[in-house]
Design a protein around this nucleic acid. Structure first.
Length: 488
RNA sequence: GUCUCCAUCGUCUAGCCCGGCCUAGGACAUCGGCCUUUCACGCCGACGACAGGGGUUCGAAUCCCCUUGGAGACGCCA
């Protein structure tokens, strides 16, 4: 094993579902690890007890697994750098906070949330540059501080940030980013409840877990100077830090549930395939450098290059995702699709249990090219399991004429004579009947389609008739003939 | 408000770092057409962008500055 091994992590907070922006961050970390032969680590950042949601953990795990983004170290997998859940690492953070305490790099702050809020409000009124902490407790003497701590007064630990100059770091995607220290106040490292803040926990963990590259969302850019300060305080070498651009909704704002689906599982429910979502997400803010768009994960990994990640935010275009999904659908494994589709059919009350898996897969394969989302299968194809109960009114008016009735009757009559019920034989039969009656096939075929399905569009007629079988076709065409008798 | 980041077709983007090959390429969407005795797929075509203004240069989408616009951050949230 080489000395400079690549180790990356995805570190979500279990505060809800995994949204597509988070999934993209996870994906890029995963791709980078795979490309470089590195390790992809999952770490749970649950240091905010007030926002923690138990279900969220499962939701995040399921979302990642569904997309095929498998972590090699982390919860459920273990590893040499665990535990991978921050609430189980409290002693570690305390230990490292103590180190900073001993070095005089942090100080206790007794300011109450109420006072801080008041201070912020006043600052805002005075139109000061920004609402950072006013450092009131920074000058409290060690003796007095100790006295107040001993007296049981609640406090947080704050990092002593420099009072002048600027802090800069080289972003892996954007290059150098310099921040004036006026924007960086004395960051809270330990909260009153004894939990670390994100800043302390992630820096300590990234160091201890030997993370080589931090690839995260760009909402962290403004916090990075604080992290740099922390690395300095500890005397550690920071990892390469790179910030991914945000994903926006079509109206330009943040992608949210209100503007349609936003969580990975919502897209699953909406009928998208994991491969398509992954492919689509990979092309948001990145491209392989050539014109390829439909790419397997392996293709993407092969082509992946951090240098080609863009700094520009991108809009999540669901139309393009839908198109891409259709592309995947066309060649997707029928059995796999059926697993998702069958419950949809069953839910509509179709007697799917009465049909063989082979038959159902065949139905799926007939519709595959025509559907862009898995959910569309559920909306179509009912007539493969049940005779049509009525006919599309507009189509019926056009197709069901007294002129086609003789053709229907001939089909019923001659069907038994067809030895091999396949599309070639059926085409022959239909042509024969058309000739016999002096009709064009263009007249008969659409009418038969309507008779058999009840609707005007769908898979190739003869493929359908072959699959439906002789008895079924005879029955339905006869029913349509009777319908004409009665209604026309 | 302050700070930071970003800026090529409606959208995703190539080209930008290392100026000329850009008459700015591809994809989605849209609109036409072809294929098809349905629908879809597929194929062909059309529409369509270097945010604006200054520089630098023989030459700028590419480098610099300003303006404008957008996004993010400014918590004992992550």
């Amino acid at each position: 094993m080489s000395e400079n091994r690549i180790r990356v992590r995805f570190a979500p907070s279990p505060t809800g579902y995994l949204h597509v922006g988070g999934a993209r961050t996870a994906l890029f970390n995963y791709l980078f690890a795979k490309k470089t032969g590195g390790t992809f680590i999952l770490r749970i950042e649950d240091t905010d007890r007030t926002r923690f949601q138990e279900d969220s953990l499962k939701e995040i795990f399921d979302s990642l697994k569904w997309m095929g983004i498998e972590w090699t170290e982390g919860p459920e997998k273990g590893g040499d750098f665990g535990p991978y859940i921050q609430s189980e690492r409290l002693d570690i953070y305390k230990e490292y906070a103590q180190i900073l305490w001993d070095r005089g790099q942090v100080y206790p702050c007794f300011c109450t949330p109420e006072r801080l809020e008041k201070m912020r409000k006043e600052k805002e009124l005075r139109k000061e540059q920004h609402g950072g902490y006013d450092r009131r407790c920074r000058e409290i003497s060690k003796e007095e501080a100790q006295k107040r701590i001993d007296a049981g007064e609640p406090y947080v630990l704050r990092l002593k940030a420099p009072l002048e100059g600027s802090i800069s770091f080289v972003d892996g995607i954007r290059g150098e980013i310099e921040t004036p220290v006026t924007m960086v106040d004395d960051t809270v490292l330990m909260k009153t409840d004894g939990y670390p803040t994100y800043h302390l926990a992630s820096v300590v963990d990234d160091h201890l877990m030997e993370i080589s590259h931090v690839l995260r969302g760009d909402e962290w850019i403004a916090s990075t100077p604080r992290h740099i300060l922390l690395y300095k305080a500890f005397g550690w070498q920071p990892p390469v830090i790179a910030h991914l651009p945000v994903i926006l909704s079509p109206d330009g704002g943040k992608l949210s549930k209100r503007k349609g689906a936003a969580s990975v599982m919502d897209y699953k429910r909406a009928g998208y395939l994991p491969e398509a979502l992954l492919n689509f997400l990979s092309l948001l803010g990145w491209n392989p450098g050539d014109d390829r768009e439909i790419m397997s994960v392996d293709d993407i990994i092969e082509a992946f290059d951090m240098n080609r990640i863009s700094a520009k935010p991108s809009v999540f275009d669901e139309d393009k995702l839908t198109w891409m999904n259709g592309q995947y659908m066309e060649h997707y494994d029928s059995a796999k699709l059926l697993a998702d589709v069958e419950p949809m059919w069953a839910e509509k009350g179709l007697p799917v249990a009465d049909f063989s898996a082979g038959y159902k897969e065949h139905v799926v394969s007939l519709f595959r090219v025509r559907c862009k989302k898995v959910t569309e299968f559920g909306e179509n194809g009912g007539y493969f399991f049940k005779d049509p109960e009525d006919y599309d009114a507009k189509q019926a008016g056009k197709q069901f004429t007294t002129a086609v009735k003789p053709a229907f009757d001939k089909i019923v009559e001659k069907a038994d004579g067809v030895a091999d019920w396949n599309r070639a034989a059926l085409e022959g039969l239909f042509h024969g009947i058309a000739d016999e009656l002096g009709m064009s096939a263009g007249k008969i075929n659409p009418a038969v389609r309507l008779a058999v399905t009840g609707v005007g569009g769908g898979p190739d007629l003869f493929d359908m008739l072959e699959l439906l079988g002789k008895d079924c076709v005879k029955r339905r065409v006869a029913a349509a003939s009777a319908w004409i008798e009665k209604n026309v």
